[in-house]
C-alpha cells in the first residue's frame, strides 16, 4: 500500500541534520512507491534542499524567510498544515521542533501523534510504531485509528540512505510567514564547552558514586584522553541535582538522550531513567564499585572497582593507544 510521506526537516548552518536524513531514509522504505517529500523552513532552506534530495527525498518544500529560522510554533504549524493534502505519514525528529509541532498538527488534522518513537514500520501496510515508556522499563507498540499518521522519532533510530550525489527533484514553496500568538523575546545558547553531548561519538558520564564534584575532574580527563573532538562529558540526574555538574550535560529521561558509539558510565548505578537517555548507545562500558549495580545489566564491558583507582589507569591506557 503506497504512502505519501512528509518529513519535517531541520537544518542548521546550511547543514541538514543527520536525523532528517535518517527520517528520509526510513520514509523511502515505508513509502512503498508513494512520494517522500521534505519541508525545510528558514534561512537558506533552498541551499539545503539538494541535501534532502541526496538523502532520498522526491520533493522538497521550502521557504527561505528568515522569520522561520527560529522555530515559532504557530507559524510552523500553519506552514506545514498547508502542504498536508494527500499526505499519509508525517515524520518529525523528537526535537525541540517535533515535541511541539507534532501534537499540534495532530490536533488540527483530527489525528494522533506518537511521540519519541524508536521504530516506525509498516505492518501489512499499516503503520506501527514502537516507543519506550515507563521510564524506559517498557516498550509500547501502537497503531493509528486515524489518518494521517504522525510520529516523532529519536535520533539514530534509522539508517540514512547512502547519499545519492547529484540527485534532484521537484521544489515547491511553503506559504509566507503568518501571524503568531507567540513573541520570541530572546534566545540564549547554553555554555557548552567543546562538542555537544548529543553529537559526540564518545560520551563519558559520571554519577553520584563519584562522591563529589571533584570526581568529575577524572571524568573530564578521560574524555580529553579520548580526544576533545570526539568525546563529551555527561552526568546523571543525581549528580546534576547535587550541583556537581551543569544540568546542560544531564543524560537521561529528563535530560539529553544520547546515542554515541561508546558510552562510558562511571559510578552511575544505571536507574532506568538514566538508561532511557543512553540505551541507544552502540556500546556501553560501566565502571562501578558495586558489582550488582544495574548499569552492568546494560553494559558490554564492565570494570568492578573504585573509579579513583581505575580512571587514572584507564586514562594512561587510552593515551598510550592514541
Amino acid at each position: 500500500m503506497t504512502k505519501n510521506i512528509l518529513v519535517v526537516g531541520e537544518h542548521a548552518d546550511s547543514e541538514m541534520t543527520a536525523t532528517t536524513a535518517e527520517l528520509i531514509g526510513q520514509s523511502t522504505r515505508l513509502a512503498e512507491g508513494g512520494a517522500v517529500s521534505v519541508a525545510l523552513l528558514g534561512c537558506c532552506a533552498t541551499d539545503v534542499a539538494p541535501q534532502a534530495f541526496e538523502a532520498g527525498a522526491g520533493k522538497v518544500f521550502v521557504n527561505d524567510d528568515d522569520g522561520y529560522t527560529e522555530y515559532n510554533s504557530d507559524q510552523w504549524v500553519t506552514a506545514i498544515e498547508s502542504i498536508l493534502e494527500g499526505i499519509d505519514v508525517i515524520l518529525i525528529a523528537q526535537s525541540t521542533v517535533g515535541r511541539d509541532l507534532a501534537p499540534r498538527l495532530a490536533a488540527r488534522q483530527g489525528t494522533a501523534a506518537a511521540m519519541d518513537c524508536v521504530d516506525v514500520r509498516s505492518d501489512s501496510g499499516e503503520i506501527r510504531v514502537t516507543r519506550p515508556c515507563y521510564g524506559g522499563n517498557a516498550l509500547a507498540d501502537y497503531s493509528f485509528a486515524t489518518s494521517p499518521v504522525i510520529a516523532t522519532v529519536r535520533a539514530k533510530a534509522f539508517e540514512a540512505l547512502a547519499p545519492q550525489s547529484g540527485a534532484s527533484g521537484e521544489t515547491a514553496d511553503l506559504p509566507a510567514l503568518s501571524d503568531s500568538r507567540t513573541t520570541i523575546e530572546g534566545r540564549e545558547v547554553a555554555e557548552a564547552e567543546g562538542l555537544a553531548i548529543t553529537d559526540a561519538p564518545i560520551v563519558v558520564s559520571g554519577g553520584r558514586g563519584l562522591g563529589g564534584p571533584e570526581g568529575f575532574g577524572d571524568v573530564e580527563n578521560l574524555a580529553a584522553a579520548f580526544g576533545s573532538n570526539r568525546a563529551a562529558v555527561g552526568a546523571s540526574r543525581a549528580a546534576c541535582d547535587l550541583g556537581w555538574y551543569p544540568v546542560s550535560q544531564q543524560v537521561g529521561l529528563t535530560g539529553k538522550v544520547v546515542t554515541p558509539d561508546l558510552y562510558v558510565a562511571i559510578a552511575i548505578s544505571g536507574a532506568s531513567q538514566h538508561m532511557a537517555g543512553c540505551s541507544g548507545s552502540k556500546m556501553i562500558i560501566a565502571i562501578n564499585r558495586d558489582p550488582e549495580a544495574n548499569i552492568f545489566q546494560n553494559a558490554k564491558y564492565g570494570i568492578v572497582g573504585d573509579y579513583k583507582a581505575v580512571l587514572p589507569a584507564l586514562i594512561e591506557a587510552v593515551k598510550a593507544q592514541s
Partner: peptide, 9 residues
Amino acid sequence: RLKLEKLYI
C-alpha cells in the same frame, strides 16, 4: 486515536 497494540518489557 492511538491504539496500544502491545506493551512489553
